[in-house]
Amino acid sequence: MSALVEARGLRRVLDGEVPTTLIGGIDMDVNGGEFLAITGPSGSGKSSLLYLLGLLDVPSAGEVTIDGRATSKLDETARARLRLETLGFVFQFHFLLPEFSALENVALPMRALGRLNNDAIRLRSHDLLVSLGLGDHAHKRPDQMSGGQRQRVAIARALANDPKLVLADEPTGNLDTASTAQVISILRAMCGPGSGKSVVVVTHDPALAAQADRRLNIVDGKVSV
């Protein structure tokens, strides 16, 4: 498997009177089609690493290369475009726009990307919701759905632009057992043969971590062997 994401010498230090090191020099790869679990104790820097890999945060040093493209010199707009085209995010809290229906939330990244026309966007949004068992909930707003349903809508939204990499930060951290099982199975299925997507999950959940092809344990901002 070739590396979809390469991180070299990645550091993230928060400035301040007493600088805080979140990530203290990490080299890692995420291969195409791989399901990678990032684990570690609370405050170890798992989420910070995920944000750096997802271009949500800018490293203090080092380089993240995504799909062969170095990102350290990209401006904010180019980074946003790369996120839109290549990455999908799922957070612990669903982070759906509350005034929009499930269908509209899923359509949002596609409308921002502008590659499909309105009919095609509507159709794909609906298909994604159906594939995640939410066909009957397409027109409901987030406050009319359960936590598990919202998280599945968030997964559908992450898949909207057919990203090469899905980054999930504690996606099951706020769900009941049944919903957790559903989400794990959906994420796992993304990396199946033929799908080609890579998934990086930050988790405390042993059941989710157990599904990963590989685990990366982070302690104090560094990879722990």
């Binding site: 997802g54 982070f95 921002a112």
Partner: peptide, 10 residues
Amino acid sequence: AIMKSLGFPS
């Protein structure tokens, strides 16, 4: 934050 994380430019 959601919109920007999805890839909406500033």
